[in-house]
Simulated assay, not measured.
Amino acid sequence: MAALTLAAKKQINEAQLAAAKRFRALYEAMGGAGAGSFDYSREPVDGGGMREALTEQ
């Protein structure tokens, strides 16, 4: 965490570090934990053919 490095070097104070930790927790709770990795063990799937047009049914 970059904020911990800045705090260790006395570049930011305790309040700023606490704000950074809170922001990180909220960001991760919203699903912003970064991009997921690609699972190479899964079987690749073909996209399929053209979709059919909408019908009355």
Rank of each mutant, 00 (worst) to 15 (best):
A53K: 15
K9H: 11
G36A: 12
D46H: 11
E56I: 06
Y40H: 11
G32P: 00
L54C: 08
S41M: 11
F38W: 09
A18H: 08
Q57N: 03
Q57T: 06
A33K: 10
L4F: 08
A33M: 12
T55P: 02
G48C: 07
A29K: 12
V45E: 15
A29E: 13
R51E: 11
Y27F: 14
R42P: 00
D46V: 04
T55F: 06
G31Q: 01
R22S: 12
Y40K: 13
P44F: 08
A19H: 06
A33F: 06
Q16M: 11
E56D: 14
D39H: 08
P44C: 04
I12Q: 11
Y27G: 01
Q11S: 10
E56H: 11
N13H: 13
A7H: 07
Q11M: 13
A35Q: 12
L4R: 12
A35E: 11
A18V: 03
K21S: 04
Q16W: 07
L4N: 14
A33C: 03
A53H: 07
G31C: 08
K21H: 05
F38Y: 13
Y27P: 00
A2V: 09
A20N: 01
G48R: 09
R51D: 13
A15P: 00
Q16E: 15
E14P: 00
A15W: 05
T5Y: 06
L54G: 07
N13Q: 12
R24H: 06
L26I: 05
Q16P: 00
E14V: 09
Y40G: 02
D39N: 15
L54I: 08
G36T: 07
A7W: 02
M1D: 10
G36I: 05
A7I: 03
E43Q: 15
A8W: 10
E52A: 11
A29C: 01
A20Y: 02
E56W: 09
K9Q: 15
D39G: 08
S41V: 09
D46C: 06
R22I: 07
A7N: 06
S37A: 13
A35D: 10
D39A: 10
Y40P: 06
T5M: 12
K9M: 12
T5E: 11
M1T: 01
R22A: 15
A29H: 07
S37T: 15
R51H: 07
A15D: 13
A29F: 10
P44K: 14
S37W: 04
E56R: 12
E52K: 14
M1Q: 08
M50L: 13
E56M: 10
L26R: 02
D46E: 14
F23P: 00
K21I: 12
A3E: 05
L54E: 09
M50A: 14
A15Q: 12
Q11L: 15
I12S: 02
S37I: 01
T5G: 08
